[in-house]
Amino acid sequence: MSEIYDLIIIGGGPAGMAAAIYAGRSERKTLLLEKSGYGGRAKDTLEIRNYPGTLSDSGQGLMEKFHAHAENFPSVKFKHSTVTGIRKEDDLFIIETKRKGGLMARSVILALGTRPRELGIPGEKEFVGHGVAYCATCDAEFFKGKNIYVLGAGDQAVEEADYLTKFAEKVTIIVLHEKGHLDCNEISAERAYKNPKIDFVWSTTVQEVKGSDHVESLVLKNVVTNEVNEVPADGLFFFVGMVPQTDLVKDLVTCDRSGYIQVNGKMETSLPGMYAVGDCIQTFLRQIVTSAADGAVAATASERYVKEQEQLSEILGPDSGAVAFVFYNPYQSAEIECVSGLEKKLGGQWKVYRQDISRQDLLYRKLNLDRTVCAAFYKDGKLLEIKSAEEI
């Protein structure tokens, strides 16, 4: 584990690859780790029409362009491997992998993505790959001429149902809501209503998936009347939401109740030096364009973090003497005046460094500070005390 990267990116979806592009532009020594294919779930999208500058492209095609762009930078390397653990030792991250052993980095970007939500319905897990599926683009060809069902009423469910009609004889969408109430956009809904191969079952959920070697029938339950009905089926596609793949870091960073990683405007997690981007974070919109933007922000923020870390290491050496860091908010005029006064007061005894927390917040976060103006006093690299402006 002698080689140290400036940045390791875990996940090769659009967010991870955008981060690699920005890191490459800065000539940072970067490694992107991906356990399967580059592009994430975006590569399974049949057609993309809302990515700026791209009138129309397949998800696979657009992601290949992302990958080629990132590979163009000599400082960026790609490796296929599964990350099994992450820990931080002093100021370095140790990334444990199945195939590449331990890797070291000064900063890490998590682009972990999501996976389809499983409902735990009897028969669901048993028939995965044998009639139960979660990706239309991946598995549609296995259902040519078949009678299949789709569970869900959002954009993904309705759009994928429309796509499945290119292969299946009939597609029935199972909707939990009352008749005419879909959760998708109006264009997709209208298209589905007009598709002669699509039927709807309203106010209904799946109670059980049945069959022998393959799905043969579904037990459906009307949530209004509680009527149970078994119908013949050759397959069932689940489109009932996604789950963040964040188990790897749930004990390292702060996540919300659903498991999504919480970040600030710079994509910083609760652990300094670690960033999270794309679908694994709690965000209002999950699109390729927003994921790419996340990656750009995180790569830029992580570069500043590493530079600030290096600066602090130089300042706080074992023979650095008496050093004082004064933290302030530059958007408060009174605080700027206060800092100037403190510099004059401390200048004779201490070497004073101003810390504008809007740009230099690494030490501020490490010290778990929540107020300004205040100062941290060090002697030969060791923290002595922290005082407010009033106490100095």
Results as ranks from 00 to 15, higher is better:
Met1Tyr: 01
Tyr5Trp: 09
Asp6Asn: 09
Ile10Pro: 05
Gly13Asn: 05
Ala18Lys: 03
Ile21Asp: 00
Tyr22Met: 01
Arg25Ile: 07
Arg28Val: 11
Leu33Gly: 02
Gly40Pro: 08
Ala42Cys: 10
Asp44Phe: 14
Asn50Trp: 04
Asp57Trp: 09
Gln60Gly: 09
Leu62Pro: 04
Met63Trp: 06
His69Glu: 12
Pro74Tyr: 04
Pro74Trp: 06
Ser75Gly: 11
Lys79Met: 11
His80Gly: 03
Val83Arg: 06
Thr97Met: 04
Lys100Trp: 08
Gly102Thr: 06
Met104Gly: 00
Arg106Ile: 01
Leu112Trp: 10
Pro116Arg: 07
Pro116Asn: 09
Gly123Trp: 03
Ala136Thr: 11
Asp139Ile: 03
Phe143Gly: 05
Val150Gln: 00
Gly154Lys: 09
Ala161His: 05
Asp162Arg: 14
Tyr163Ile: 04
Ala168Arg: 06
His177Cys: 02
Gly180Asp: 08
Glu190His: 14
Arg191Tyr: 01
Tyr193Thr: 01
Lys197Ile: 03
Ile198Asp: 03
Phe200Thr: 01
Phe200Gly: 02
Trp202Gln: 02
Thr205His: 06
Val209Thr: 00
Lys210Met: 00
Lys210Trp: 00
Asp213Tyr: 07
Asp213Asn: 13
Glu216Gln: 15
Val219Ser: 12
Val223Ala: 01
Glu230Lys: 14
Val231Pro: 13
Gly235Trp: 02
Phe237Thr: 06
Phe238Arg: 08
Val240Ser: 08
Pro244Ala: 04
Leu248Lys: 07
Lys250Cys: 05
Leu252Thr: 13
Asp256His: 12
Arg257Phe: 10
Gly265Gln: 11
Lys266Asn: 14
Glu268Ala: 15
Thr269Tyr: 14
Gly273Glu: 12
Tyr275Pro: 07
Tyr275His: 11
Gln282Leu: 15
Phe284Glu: 15
Ser291Pro: 06
Ala293Cys: 13
Gly295Pro: 07
Ala296Gly: 07
Ala299Gly: 07
Thr300Lys: 11
Thr300Pro: 03
Glu303His: 07
Val306Trp: 08
Lys307Gln: 09
Glu308Thr: 02
Gln309Val: 02
Leu312Ile: 08
Glu314Met: 07
Pro318Cys: 02
Ser320Phe: 06
Ala322Leu: 05
Val323Asp: 02
Ser333Pro: 12
Glu337Lys: 14
Glu337Asn: 08
Gly341Asp: 00
Gln349Gly: 00
Val352Trp: 10
Asp361Phe: 09
Leu362Arg: 13
Tyr364Thr: 10
Tyr364Gly: 10
Lys366Cys: 09
Phe377Asp: 02
Glu385Phe: 15
Ile386Gln: 13
Ile392Thr: 05
